[in-house]
């Protein structure tokens, strides 16, 4: 579980996050949604520790990020997996080497154990025979799946996904969403997904946080999204004829 309390984040004079407080529960797919520029990516990067909050508290299962020293922060980071928007796969490595990398750096596994774990993770994301391919040889969906395999290979407690569906066709998007949800439940981890994909909201949104102009504007789940009367949320999610009809 990750609790965030009154998080502010400024870039110079510009205030991007304005006192956000919420709880991201374990075993659930937590979605952060909002328009481009609303601050959702900054929120996810701040919670994951890639950006430092200007003020406020981020608590990982009772451990306050602000109270941690460098060693404790590094140890915490090893409990985090992250899927970046473009995959962020290492160009100079093959798929297998990418997935193996976190194990190589920090685990005490033997080479054979690492290979077994890599095989398991690649099988789990349905990419069994791609070990020797390089990132440049993969499609967008495959890159995302390799990124998911790399993120889960070291058994993280926390999984962050930055727009995992961006640039993917609707069918592949749904596959990626389902995969993330299944992994969240299987590993019982705290998953936070930054998205503006309507399908993701309705398919896997067990806890949805809507960010509007740096504020937490609405919170609920995929069922409540349909019935809520928050104007800004409705304008954001139900912005074409089909979705408006769905809402009605």
């Amino acid at each position: 579980m990750i609790e965030i309390k009154d998080i502010y984040k400024n870039f110079g004079e510009k205030q991007v996050l304005k006192g956000i407080t919420t709880v991201f529960e374990t075993g659930k797919t937590n979605l952060v949604i909002g328009r481009s520029g609303s601050g959702k990516t900054v929120l996810v990067k701040t919670v994951s520790g890639l950006e430092k909050a200007t003020s406020g508290e981020i608590i990982y299962d009772g451990r306050a990020l602000s109270a941690m020293n460098d060693d404790q922060t590094t140890a915490l980071k090893r409990e985090i997996g992250m899927v970046f928007q473009g995959g962020a796969l290492f160009d100079s490595m093959t798929v297998a080497e990418n997935v193996r990398f976190p194990l190589l750096m920090f685990s005490k596994m033997s080479s054979a154990e690492m290979d077994k774990r890599v095989d398991f993770c690649l099988d789990r994301v349905d990419l069994p025979n791609t070990h020797k391919l390089f990132a440049s040889e993969l499609s967008g969906g495959m890159r995302k799946r390799v990124a998911i395999a790399r993120a889960i290979v070291a058994n993280p407690k926390y999984l962050f996904c930055d727009e995992p569906n961006s640039g993917l066709d609707p069918q592949t998007s749904i596959l990626i969403d389902k995969l993330i949800k299944e992994i969240t439940e299987e590993l019982n981890i705290t998953t936070i997904i930054n998205t503006h994909d309507m399908n993701s909201v309705l398919e896997i949104g067990e806890h949805i946080v809507f960010i509007y102009n740096g504020n937490l504007w609405w919170e609920g789940n995929r069922h409540e999204v349909i019935t809520c009367d928050n104007k800004e949320l409705n304008d954001f999610l139900f912005n074409n004829e089909i979705t408006k009809r769905l809402k009605q």
């Binding site: 890639l50 980071k77 970046f84 990398f101």
Partner: peptide, 17 residues
């Protein structure tokens, strides 16, 4: 620079590297 803008460096940092 390319690693930076494609978030590969962020990926290393988030792993605790």
């Amino acid at each position: 620079g390319t690693m930076r803008i494609t978030e590969q460096i962020d990926a290393l940092n988030i792993m605790g590297v």
